[in-house]
């Protein structure tokens, strides 16, 4: 069974149809790269998966459980949506770290707030806190930030910020980790260090969806590639097929700019 199934997702803003009938599925432990020009709907698709936008119609299932179904009439309340979005993690293009917290606190905050809802929180307070802190330290070390844990975001480089953001998303152990152009705000050198940790995550079989303009990286790391254009999935398949032998004229046109450069 696929870990993620997306069926017939549609989304319009005002009078512009941004997503037109998007369907795909993803297997556990696989990496999906979504490529395509700006404005093709890639980011909106990720935002729908993370419940930052509500699709107009369609179905989203994780592990066979329906998280969103436009045909089911009941409107979900905030608490339910909150639980459902924890299946997904999202790493933003602009990091969106919390500036008043250190790297370590950024990684710990969400889990600490969630822990307060546990029934045994009061009796095990200290223990839980230590557990969360230990996990956050492991994650930051894994991101190569062992000596940066006590730094505030403004004291870190863009690449370091993005790695903190990845650790922060991983702290909640999402089923699927999404990246929205994670290196678009970084220079080539910093891009390299962020791509390196994403590659490491792929090697440890983390299920990921990566929206990116780094074509070489997408081909290298992905098990499956989707090419989006004007709100539709124009082509999908394994990276070699889609990126080296594209069938559609539009895909060839898009990829030509990268292979020439």
């Amino acid at each position: 069974m696929s870990i993620l199934e997306v069926e017939h997702i549609q989304k319009s803003f005002e009078h512009t149809e941004v997503l037109k009938d998007i369907s795909f599925s993803l297997e556990k432990g696989q990496v999906l790269s979504i490529i395509g020009s700006s404005g093709s709907g890639k980011t909106t698709l990720l935002r729908c998966l993370n419940f930052l936008e509500r699709p107009d119609s369609g179905i989203i299932r994780v592990n066979g459980e329906s998280l969103f179904d436009s045909s089911a009439s009941s409107r979900k309340n905030e608490a339910e949506i909150r639980k459902k979005r924890l299946h997904f993690g999202l790493v933003f293009q602009s990091f969106n770290l919390f500036p008043q917290y250190t790297a370590l606190q950024n990684v710990m905050l969400a889990r600490e707030l969630l822990a307060k809802e546990q029934p045994d929180y009061k009796s095990r307070k200290k223990e839980i806190h230590q557990e969360i802190e230990a996990q956050a330290e492991i994650l930051l070390k894994q991101m190569g930030l062992a000596d940066r844990m006590q730094n505030y975001p403004h004291q870190l480089s863009g690449g370091q910020c993005q790695r903190v953001a990845i650790a922060r998303a991983l702290a909640l152990q999402p089923d699927i980790l999404c990246f929205d152009e994670p290196t678009s705000a970084l220079d080539p050198e910093l891009t390299g260090e962020v791509l390196k940790v994403i590659k490491e995550l792929a090697d440890t079989k983390t299920t990921m969806i990566i929206v990116t303009h780094e074509m070489a990286f997408a081909r290298d790391v992905a098990d499956h590639v989707i090419f989006m254009d004007d709100g539709c999935i124009l082509e999908q398949g394994n990276p070699i097929d889609v990126m080296e032998h594209p069938k559609e004229e539009r895909t060839k046109q898009f990829l030509a700019r990268f292979t020439q450069g």
Partner: peptide
């Protein structure tokens, strides 16, 4: 948005 995707309440 970062808070929301991390499962925080408003």
């Amino acid at each position: 948005e970062a808070g929301l995707v991390l499962g925080m309440t408003k």
